[in-house]
């Protein structure tokens, strides 16, 4: 546990001692802020119109009209951001030869991977936490429900954690950061849109694809439905990514 903590501290330090953390966080906040702003102004215009008609007035819902689409937008931005957070984690150690220090220290490969994974999770949590500040305005001037908002953030975090695990795996495959980032991006995008194919398929094939799709499980969470099936999906997907990274490093050393 202490070893994981040491590595995690080192990685977080590395994020902030290079421009990566500042650039990625501010870019992410800028994008999310813009989406939030445009959704809120759209919501305002809609609400004005709908309020005139008593039938539609019941359907004004800030959770569904602002937060749910915002969370979807954020999940897409995360696809772009996650590879940037993970690309250097293992690839850079290999390129600079510092992996030799890690692997000749009394650390297990599992500890090394977990330390790095948790460091990236801290970055993710910090980024999501900062965007949550935006919602203060919505809560101050409107009356959104808290439960769907919370499950939405939980969903984003779980999804981001899965992205990071996949990114860590690709970072273990190569010593080139750009290759690692691009492969992560391609894979994440494919996984996100798997359900498009599923919608035109049929039978088992369809249900398998739509189950595997990253976005399918996110859908419910943005609406306030917390299903253990979805949580298990993200957790098992993350573990699988970490397991693959572990196997890659282990096998590389034994070759």
């Amino acid at each position: 546990m202490r070893n994981i903590w040491s590595l995690m501290k080192k990685e977080i330090g590395a994020y902030f001692s290079s421009p990566i953390a500042y650039v990625v966080i501010s870019g992410f906040l800028l994008l999310v802020g813009y989406f939030f702003y445009s959704l809120v102004s759209w919501f305002n215009a809609q609400a004005m119109q709908m309020a005139q008609n008593p039938y539609y007035a019941q359907h004004i819902n800030i959770n569904e009209m602002v937060f749910s689409p915002l969370f979807h937008n954020m999940s897409i931005i995360l696809i772009l951001v996650a590879p940037l957070l993970t690309m250097r984690l293992l690839a850079e150690e290999k390129k600079s030869g510092t992996d030799e220090l890690l692997y000749t220290s009394p650390l297990s490969v599992g500890q090394i991977i977990l330390g790095k994974y948790f460091a990236a999770l801290v970055m993710l949590a910090a980024m999501l936490g900062l965007t949550a500040l935006l919602s203060i305005f919505a809560f101050a001037f409107g009356n959104p429900e808290i439960a769907p908002w919370l499950t939405g953030y939980l969903g984003l975090f779980l999804m981001g954690a899965t992205f990071i695990a996949i990114g860590l795996f690709f970072s273990s495959l190569t010593d080139n950061q750009i290759v690692a980032a691009f492969l992560t991006f391609v894979t994440l995008l494919l996984l996100l849109v798997l359900n498009w194919v599923a919608s035109s398929g049929s039978g088992t094939w369809q249900s398998v694809l739509s189950y595997l799709s990253l976005s399918q499980h996110f859908e419910d969470m943005t609406r306030g439905i917390l299903d253990t099936k979805d949580v298990v999906y993200y957790l098992s997907f993350s573990s699988f990514g970490l397991f693959l990274a572990h196997s890659v490093i282990q096998s590389r050393r034994w070759r």
Partner: peptide
Amino acid sequence: KKSIGYLPEVVPLYLDMTVSGYLGFVAEIK
């Protein structure tokens, strides 16, 4: 690993760390 100190051919340095910060990290993982 606990009883060996190893200087690899390519010195394994984290360039963005200070010398004492780096030594502190190595002390932790050792």
